[in-house]
């Protein structure tokens, strides 16, 4: 008994020793800064130096910010549109690439390609595509079919969907590859069986292929919500939140408080609120993925 107990202790120690370096990194880069942020949201500060405890005052005065409500609303709109556009596209791509008779591997490589491009570079390129007037790339393309130049990102109601389109352009490919792997993991006999039952190719997609992707779909959904909820650079670089706040996101509020006004306590307060909302989403993630594990 003592021998094995000693062994257990030794194993525990060696396990923790192996974890230690990475845990230090997490503590240093993630946890400690986060605690600092939570603490700061309850204080007044001069620069980054805390001055006095003020309780929830910072949270209260967020309400005085005219952009606060609209930023939350927009963030949910980004999420909504990314579910409409960004969520379906990868599934369609995966089905398409699986079923196409030629270009299979070429398309597979092509759809993943934008993923490796730096996001900042992609945003700058899209800005020129959306440029108003005759010199804009999309307007040029429209001109060849006789359509007058549009204002794209400044057009009412189009700003968020267009930003989501550019995000989808960049990221749909990697999600599509995951779905494709999911599809190729389906037992071919299931498809054969459906065929024998007389199902045509469309029926097979709806009755066999899509149902077996459900687990994957739920997980991707949550991951997508979490990542779109944190949208910052796209509106910051492409529209600066305009027109008239139509595309300002909640993370932009954090950025503006911190880097435009040096108001760290309020930036921290908004950050904490985002973390809380995302934690709720994640609780959902664990429920979903936990259930998937049991299936």
């Amino acid at each position: 008994m003592p021998v094995s107990q000693k062994k257990n202790i030794n194993r525990a120690i060696s396990g923790w020793l192996i974890m230690l370096p990475t845990l230090i990194l997490f503590a240093f880069y993630v946890w400690e800064p986060l605690l600092k942020i939570i603490q700061m949201s309850l204080y007044n500060a001069q620069g980054f130096t805390l001055t006095e405890f003020v309780g929830l005052d910072n949270y209260k005065s967020l309400l005085a910010n005219p952009d606060f409500t609209i930023a939350w609303k927009n963030t949910f709109m980004y999420t909504f549109w990314s579910l409409i556009i960004g969520f379906c596209v990868p599934i369609l791509l995966a089905l398409l690439i699986t079923e196409t008779p030629v270009f299979r591997s070429l398309t597979r490589v092509a759809v993943y390609f934008p993923n490796i491009l730096p996001g900042l570079a992609v945003m700058l390129i899209w800005l020129f595509f959306f440029k108003p007037g005759n010199a804009g790339v999309l307007n040029n393309i429209l001109a060849t079919v006789g359509i007058k130049p549009l204002t794209w990102l400044s057009a009412k109601g189009w700003t968020i969907p267009l930003i989501v389109v550019t995000m989808t352009w960049r990221s749909a490919g990697s999600t599509a590859l995951i779905y494709m792997a999911g599809i190729s993991g389906i037992n071919p006999e299931q498809v054969e069986a459906a065929t024998i039952d007389g199902a045509g190719i469309i029926r097979r997609i709806f009755s066999v292929i899509l149902p077996s992707l459900t687990g994957l779909v739920k997980v991707m959904l949550i991951l997508q919500i979490i990542s779109v909820f944190q949208i910052l650079y796209e509106p910051l670089m492409m529209t600066n939140g305009g027109p008239n706040n139509a595309s300002i996101s909640i993370m932009m509020l954090v950025y503006n408080y911190a880097f435009l006004h040096f108001d760290f306590p309020k930036a921290a307060a908004v950050s904490v609120m985002i973390c809380i909302v995302l934690s709720l989403f994640t609780a959902l993630y664990f429920v979903v993925s936990g259930r998937r594990g049991k299936e």
């Binding site: 997490f26 240093f28 880069y29 993630v30 946890w31 400690e32 800064p33 986060l34 600092k36 942020i37 700061m40 980054f48 979490i226 944190q230 910052l232 993370m251 954090v254 950025y255 911190a258 760290f264 930036a267 921290a268 908004v270 950050s271 985002i274 973390c275 995302l278 934690s279 989403f281 994640t282």
Partner: peptide, 18 residues
């Protein structure tokens, strides 16, 4: 897992100071 929820930009200044 919880760290996945933290938008990296929120704590960038604290991170930088560390």
């Amino acid at each position: 897992m919880w760290t996945m929820l933290i938008p990296p930009t929120t704590s960038v200044v604290a991170q930088y100071l560390n």
